[in-house]
């Protein structure tokens, strides 16, 4: 027996140490077991979510035929899409403003802007509710206008996240690139469109995903700003589990997970495609 094997484990070869492998496995179980269980039990042929009784699609069908559930889902998606779109535009503009310009009170403004990130959601929720009732925000509008209050609330807490992500991306921008574009004959807008936007693209995708997820699963703030005819999915699920956790809830949640996964995959694929393939990036 020799102390020196042919291929000794180096000091940084963590992946070859048994204890490290065990910790890794434990972490994965801890992180993903609940999600896997949730998805698995959405196919469980039982009223109760405790014992496995066989495979069925019944609860998906049931969820699909539950019109109030579908409506809540549609509301959630609409709000998430609108809020993502607007907060990405708003957050990006703010990030560019903070990155490019120096103005009096900039530090103070930056602090204020990140307030929605640090402030407890419950406070923001109550504040939003008080605000909308104080200004007499009209209720009983037609869809999708009746979602405006929730959408505005979502924009107000997700755009600072967008700003943070985009600013981090902008920090790595070489300003000479923009100057080079102008030197070659591009105006402000052309330089922005042809040079700055392509640089920000990965940040924009990441920020949009973040904003979308933040909006889609927000409960607290939505709870305070929604009315009886503007129920979103998290609120609907909450009201459903107050009676019992049925596999129907599992089914809806599984659909939500699937939607998020598909969107993330699409975003990553889109990003990869742009990064690797030579393409004509010039448009006017």
């Amino acid at each position: 027996m020799s102390f020196r094997s042919n291929n000794p484990i180096g000091p940084l070869d963590y992946s070859r140490r048994t204890w490290m492998k065990l910790i890794l496995l434990g972490t994965f179980v801890f992180l993903y077991a609940p999600i896997i269980t949730l998805v698995a039990f959405s196919f469980n042929d039982s009223r109760r979510n405790i014992v496995w009784r066989g495979f069925t699609f019944k609860y998906y069908e049931k969820a699909w035929n539950n019109s109030s559930l579908v409506e809540a889902f549609a509301n959630s998606l609409t709000i998430a899409l609108l809020s993502t779109l607007i907060s990405v535009v708003l957050g990006t503009m703010t990030a560019i403003l903070l990155w490019r310009f120096r103005f009096p009170g900039k530090a103070g403004y930056e602090g204020l802007m990140s307030l929605p990130i640090v402030i407890p959601e419950i406070c923001l929720g109550v504040a939003m509710m008080a605000f909308f009732s104080r200004i007499g925000w009209p209720s009983g509008l037609h869809w999708p206008l009746n979602l405006a209050a929730i959408t505005i609330a979502h924009i107000s807490f997700s755009f600072p996240f967008v700003t943070v992500v985009i600013r981090a991306r902008l920090a790595s921008f070489n300003r000479e690139l923009e100057e080079a574009a102008k030197d070659l004959g591009a105006g402000e807008w052309q330089a922005f469109k042809n040079i700055l936007i392509p640089h920000m693209r990965p940040g924009l995708i990441a920020a949009a995903l973040l904003a979308f997820t933040l909006s889609l699963d927000d409960f607290v703030i939505t709870f305070f700003t929604s009315g009886p005819d503007t129920i979103t999915l998290p609120i609907k699920i909450y009201s459903m589990i107050r009676f019992s956790v049925t596999p129907e809830v599992n089914a809806v949640s599984s659909v939500l997970i699937a939607v998020t996964l598909i969107m993330t995959t699409l975003a990553l694929w889109f990003q990869g495609r742009n990064g690797n393939q030579p393409e004509d990036t010039f448009h006017g």
Binding site: N174, E176, L177, E179, A180, A181, K182, D183, L184, G185, A186, G187, N194, I195, P198, H199, N274, P278, D280, T281, F282
Partner: peptide, 23 residues
């Protein structure tokens, strides 16, 4: 700058990273 009859070679070269040599 975009209307001056001068052009510049920047210290960092400032070659646009997302475009091909031709572009």
């Amino acid at each position: 700058p975009n209307q001056r009859p001068v052009n510049m070679v920047f210290q960092s070269y400032a070659v646009f990273p997302h475009m091909t040599v031709f572009d």
